[in-house]
Design a protein around this nucleic acid. Structure first.
Lengths: 207, 207, 207, 207
DNA sequence: GATGAATGAGTCTTCATTCAT
DNA sequence: TATGAATGAAGACTCATTCAT
């Protein structure tokens, strides 16, 4: 088995430095020295600074993505005629799970969302959002919203981004969940209202 | 008269590099070489890399800020009892002006919002949002929203952020303005709805 | 154990360059290249050009200072009424020790006295002289010399400076010690003579 | 005639900067800008930074040297048997003239003695001293002093150096002259005393 | 006589990475 | 597994100097 101790210390130090300065500004030498080792030791485990970041963040990134695709799969399993009715529940549950997951991996989430410039994860948030977009697209099917496509895209992105922010900025789990609910209400009600106000068109679609 | 030619070439090159790599990652030497000059030439015009960024972005930053403070001033001039009614109009007009301004300075806006890490403009977006928060606070007066403080903060931030995104991502002026309107509708209607429903206390639907 | 070899080579090269050109004019790149290494290698040992100078000179500077303060302490231990009588001996002995020390660290002494501009040791000589002045002041107590304050200051400075020069320029230990004695004789006898003649007030002869 | 105005302004500025930072550390660009011009203007008059320093200091350097050689010439004109008697007067008068000259050109003297590193005048003081040494050698002829040759050299150097310091540090002409006299007394009396104490040897020689 | 644009070699310093041990 | 020495390219910035105008 690998020398867990060394790796763990390096990981901790790396987390600290990456969170404080971002991937690029963080000096590998300092990370490793802070952990009580030398650069040579580091290169026994990883062959690149980015690989270290990857290792730190991989599981969490996977977790997030699989959470999303699980939601998509669940939704897919619902017959088309029940989809519109089920989406709400699927979404609520999925989001709750995601929030819990992010809360359990707050540091890594922050790394992923705020400190990854210069990394292959640079655009992780956008990619997440794209997943979210696809999910929404599938959910609403061909129902057209009386919203600009750009507006739709932005709103969904925004929704997901807000989710991330809530988790990152909230202090207690309760505050975060309540905040999420509030945000969800505003978005849902807002969109519903827009739908209703839209004079002649279809009014049964949802974001 | 200043040597417009050289400066212009350097500016263009700088814009390109800053947009592509952000302020920090962009190499001054490469910027200047790309413009067809040597570093020495550059230092005849600016005495710092940051000064160059500043020059590129100054006017636009000023424009944005004065647009916002103008909105605030206009709103202040409205008597208290009409405020809630007027805010929508003031806001719509102000935003339209802001969008137009941003559209005319798209590159600079992007520099400001996405490429300024390592610069005094690093937190320009957050500062803008804070202005927006204050504006909202004044507008709504002492009306308390049935939303988590964090939710309120995030929603306002999100709103401003969406504005920026819309401008940055939209292709035509029309698309952007329509998108902005859509977004605004969703937000205001959503918030209004939440306000009205508050007594009844049932707000769990879908996003 | 530290890599004595590399450090030694760098030190030698640095000594050579600093002695030849002074701290500021000496190019770190050239120093290190001359030692057969690259700049990166250097920064493994020191983190600053000045730190290198410091390392070269530290021990010698300490030695000189402690030599002087030892003299002061010895003198302080003498009862007041014997002070004037004892100073000469204390001084002679102390100076002999100092000369020996400087002789053993000739290069470093020269670095300290002639090549330190731009360094924290820039004013080392003046500080030494100030120590010397204090020493003299204590030694002569309240005996007032019939000399301009400026003259007193300059003479003491000169005395110390001569000491340094003698060590730096002299070839053999014997020559230096004899030279020092000569100089000391001239100074003390000169000052004593001035003291004695003072009443008569005629002191215009030749240098 | 040359444009006196421009040159004068540049000279003043240069004096200021050289005095403050020394020749090397002073930036030519800043000197010229401070004078209200650009580098191009400067290179109309001089073709090198050092040439500027030279121009600033030339006359004063010449003056000092000719003052010394005048002293030597005067002494040479005295028949050998009167030399020993005359030297005192020649020296006193010469020194007085030199002091006056230095006082009138204090800034330039300081440039010469303290700010010339990196210039052909780098060793001006030593060269002056060497002149002084030759003068003294001629004066004393083959009379041997009971002093180490090094001691002799250093004492003479020291004497000249003290002269320079006195002029540079003294505030009023009177203070300086009195200080010079004091120093001269100490040196003369000191040397005389050494001569007398020297048991069997010739005692008529002088430094 | 003076400008201002431009150069090119130079400064110290930082970094991720390699490699023999 | 870990060290420590070393590299080489890159970073921003400075400077004396040149030259066309």
């Amino acid at each position: 088995m690998e020398n867990t101790d060394t790796l763990q210390k390096i990981h901790e130090s790396a987390k600290k430095h990456f969170l404080a300065n971002g991937f690029q500004r963080a000096s590998l030498r300092r990370i490793v020295a802070d952990a009580g080792f030398t650069l040579g030791a580091f290169y026994g485990y990883y062959s690149t600074k980015e690989e270290l970041f990857h290792a730190l963040v991989e599981r969490t990134a996977q977790g997030i993505l699989s959470c999303l695709s699980e939601m998509a799969a669940t939704l897919n399993a619902i017959p088309d005629d029940l989809k519109l009715a089920g989406i709400s529940e699927v979404f609520s549950e999925g989001m709750a799970r995601l929030v819990d997951f992010l809360l359990k991996n707050k540091d890594e989430a922050r790394l992923l969302l705020e400190c990854a410039e210069g990394t292959r994860y640079e655009n992780f948030l956008s990619e997440m959002m794209e997943q979210g977009l696809l999910f929404m697209a599938k959910a609403t099917g061909r129902h057209e919203l009386p919203l600009t496509p750009l507006a739709q895209k932005l709103l969904v992105q925004s929704y997901f981004s807000l989710l991330g922010q809530a988790v990152l900025l909230g202090d207690t789990r309760e505050e975060i969940l309540k905040t999420m609910k509030d945000i969800q209400s505003v978005f849902t009600d807002g969109i519903v209202h827009v739908l209703l106000e839209e004079p002649a068109k279809e009014r049964n679609s949802l974001p």
